[in-house]
Simulated scan of single mutants.
Amino acid sequence: MDKKGKISDPLARGLAILELLGVEDTGYTLKEIAARVGMSKTSAHRYGSMLCDQGYLARDPRSGLYRLGVRTLSLALAIIEHNDLVRLVQPLVDEAAARHGVHIDVGILANDAIYLIYRRDSPDTRAYRSFSYSSALHYLAAGKAAMAFLEPEALRELVGRLDLVAQTARTITDPEALLADLEQVRRQGFSRNNEESLPGLIAIGAPLFSLRTNAVIGAISFDSATATYSMQEFEDRFAGYLVELAKKLSAVVSL
């Protein structure tokens, strides 16, 4: 980035646009892309046109909104099929999803964000949008589970960098309140998302650690609709299973 925080490298700009479109499936206008990535509208148009020509983006001719294109989907499927990390995680997650009937996300922490590497949906959560990549760690169960186990100084610095936006009335947006919540997560070993990201959606999360360095590297979350379980029922029923599964996943992702 340059001194003003704008992305200057051409490849980084293109990747930043793809990452942006991967977060929201509602699409973005050129003006929104330019503002969020940090470039002029002219540059956004040039990059958007190039990525559309290559199939990585698609533009709706009626609304003008840009979304991810079919080539991105093909690339994502290839990664899922051939990535060693996904192959190691998949059987454990699939078994847990089949046994417990819950939505499961596994994400890896990097660059102040959490990146989804594997997901299993459940029938009661298919109506809800879930993250594929998110820098809004403070309202995701997986994000909070990973953040809580950072070193204290690194955690405070991260909280200071995050944009603590409110997704619902229950989202924690005060830095000190968030730090207190994360301390509770650290003590009990798992996090809660009590309708903090979407009304009607609850989740619990547990951290993944590198067995070589003992550093937190990601998290796993179980999600459910409030129509199926209350927060307390969900926590009482699944927190123990979640923490044990997180330990098993830590063993395989650290190989």
Rank of each mutant, 00 (worst) to 15 (best):
S74N: 06
I117E: 01
L158Y: 03
L211W: 03
I79S: 04
Y115W: 15
D25N: 11
T173R: 03
F131M: 14
V243T: 15
V23R: 10
A110H: 08
G22W: 00
L179E: 10
L75M: 14
T171N: 07
A16P: 01
I172E: 12
L182W: 09
S135M: 02
R36C: 00
G22M: 12
M50N: 04
H100V: 07
K3C: 10
A142S: 15
L140K: 06
P175G: 11
N111H: 13
L68I: 08
K41M: 11
T168R: 02
R71C: 07
I17R: 00
S191K: 02
Y133W: 08
E196G: 01
L65T: 02
Y128S: 08
L15C: 11
S224V: 10
D121V: 04
A203E: 10
A58Q: 11
L179F: 05
N111L: 10
L88T: 08
L73A: 13
T125C: 15
V23Y: 04
D181F: 01
K31S: 15
S40D: 08
A76M: 08
T72W: 09
L75Q: 04
M1Y: 05
D163E: 13
L20S: 06
E24W: 01
R67S: 14
R87L: 15
V93N: 00
E244R: 13
G64E: 08
I17C: 01
T168G: 09
A35L: 02
S134F: 02
P91G: 01
V37W: 00
A98V: 08
V216L: 03
A227L: 14
